[in-house]
């Protein structure tokens, strides 16, 4: 390992810390809405306060089971082989996102009161 390697590593660490710090600042607090996208299209929108179960119809016949409970959105079952979205932690903070790449399903938390989308 050379000194240049350490410069590169410290640069990357600084960039990551700045990003995470930015997340803390921007996405402060809990969101109240869960938005489900399949690809670029918005498919459904739920309140985080209501207990809901919903089957998301993803691309190419894929399915993801979305469950909202205790103010958190969680994907409990998926048809995809990797199950990455199922293993992800439930989301509740603004900006937090669960993605299922094979089904192109994106579940993201937003705030209805201060909607950040244009």
């Amino acid at each position: 390992m050379k000194r240049q390697d350490l410069y590169l590593l410290s640069f990357l660490v600084v960039v990551i810390v700045i990003f995470l710090w930015g997340y803390q600042l921007l996405n402060h607090g809990a969101g109240d809405e869960v938005v489900v996208y399949v690809g670029e299209e918005e498919q459904a929108r739920f309140s985080l306060e209501e207990e809901t179960k919903f089957v998301i119809e993803g691309k190419e016949g894929g399915k993801n089971d979305l469950e909202i409970h205790d103010g958190q959105a969680d994907i409990t079952e998926a048809s995809c082989p990797d199950q990455i979205c199922v293993h992800q932690k439930p989301v509740s903070e603004i900006g937090e996102t669960i993605v299922c790449m094979p089904n192109q399903v994106i579940v993201t938390v937003e705030s209805a009161s201060q909607n950040r989308r244009e």
Binding site: V13, V15, I16, G39
Partner: peptide
């Protein structure tokens, strides 16, 4: 592919993981 920039949420985590 997905045409949704919400994915960029993962960028810093992927940056850290890649490092």
């Amino acid at each position: 592919i997905v045409k949704n920039s919400a994915l960029l949420y993962y960028f810093p985590f992927l940056l850290g993981a890649g490092t």
